[in-house]
Design a binder for these strands. Structure first.
Lengths: 212, 212
DNA sequence: GCTGAAAAGTTCCGGGTGGAACTTTTCGGT
DNA sequence: ACCGAAAAGTTCCACCCGGAACTTTTCAGC
């Protein structure tokens, strides 16, 4: 691995380094934005650096000044969307109120191709090589579990969650269900993802069997 | 789509069609077997028809006599493994006794790359185009849900599953949890997939809170 | 046990990919 | 307001992929 990393984001201010020009900053955003659109149209294989470049009127090699590799570009797209989603959730107060089923809707109602892109990237992360992606997703899932755990702890304080279950395990289960159900739903819109999350939510509730 | 499909498996016995030669049948199996091994080493992108061909000492174009496309080849690998797994489960009697948590172990303890391959293929199935894969997985998940449903119905007859939940939804949830937890586990062996399945199993049980 | 028609397999071709070397543009410093 | 160094971008190259056209091998029928 020849470390020619062009991955200097901040001005560094080291001797003689000028940092990004305004134009460059704009371009970077443009690349990230267009990338998801192109992906939604052409899928993973179709979304080559050339394809993205063409979509914004620039040669493929230009993109390499902003992202060392296509993998890295896509990861950055996902990082960005995560940050955005987290901020929105925080702003809307979803990070205190439970409503797991509601999470589902949120989770799914995202930019068209985004969910599929995440799937593709996770798949690659599971393969040999791609350590970078694997590390990203490992950390991502840890973070998601932590967030879910926090929600569950809030809920337990309010007494709306069974007292006899380990919350960390429940957190992992919640995230897993979200993932798994959304997969089924994406493949087959007939599969009712909302119902699945609602059921799990009910199962976690303090033993109060009631019908919907 | 020029339908030049070489997808004749049985002898057909139509006028002047001779069907597969013994050598061809062997080759087909060899291709399927080697494909997963190569995948485990090289990942999705790395596993080109050429790479598989090279692994068995044959040119890439030879493979096309058996599988119209790489996609189709991989799908056949998955079909094969599914049939195999189903047969084994049936033989071991797992198709009547519940033990969902045990399913997890089974599900995960498969050929090295297989799980990752499935992930990759599902990811592609979610993208535009790839209707063939999408159809395959849609049907696969329907089938998995049916199987899970059957297990749940057995369990309910025995009174080991809460009476106040819709079993079809529970089936979807079960499969989803299996998928989602295994993803987390593959990314991070520290994530305890078994615990997650055990918890869900317990949550589905007739309300008998007990510690493990 | 020959024969020839279909099966099995190879060689070659057009096209697309990522990376290296090179050119043009931008803009901070004076 | 202009110079020049780094940023931004392009052209070119070596490689690999899948598909078409072609060749060799296998074996059912006589």
């Amino acid at each position: 691995m020849t470390d020619e990393a062009p991955e200097k984001v901040s001005p560094v201010s080291g001797q003689g380094a000028r940092g990004r020009y305004p134009k460059g900053i704009l371009r970077r955003r443009q690349i990230l934005d267009r990338a998801v659109e192109v992906y939604a149209d052409l899928g993973f294989e179709g979304t080559s650096l050339r394809a993205i470049g063409e979509a914004i009127g620039v040669s493929h090699a230009a993109l390499r000044r902003y992202f060392e590799t296509r993998e890295e570009l896509f990861l950055e797209v996902l990082r960005e969307k995560d940050r955005q989603a987290l901020a929105e959730a925080h702003e809307a107060g979803h990070d205190r109120a439970p409503g797991f089923a509601a999470m589902a809707a949120n989770y799914a109602q995202q930019v068209p191709g985004l969910m599929a892109l995440r799937h593709s990237m996770v798949a690659r992360a599971l393969e040999p090589g791609n350590e970078h992606s694997r590390e990203f997703f490992r950390e991502r899932y840890r973070s998601l579990r932590r967030q879910a755990l926090t929600l569950l702890e809030f809920a337990r304080e309010r007494g709306t969650v069974r007292a006899d279950i380990p919350l960390d395990t429940a957190a992992a289960l919640l995230i897993a269900a979200l993932d798994g159900l959304s997969t089924q739903w994406l493949l087959d819109p007939g599969a009712d993802m909302h119902a699945g999350m609602a059921l799990l939510e009910r199962l976690l509730e303090t033993g109060t069997p009631r019908e919907d």
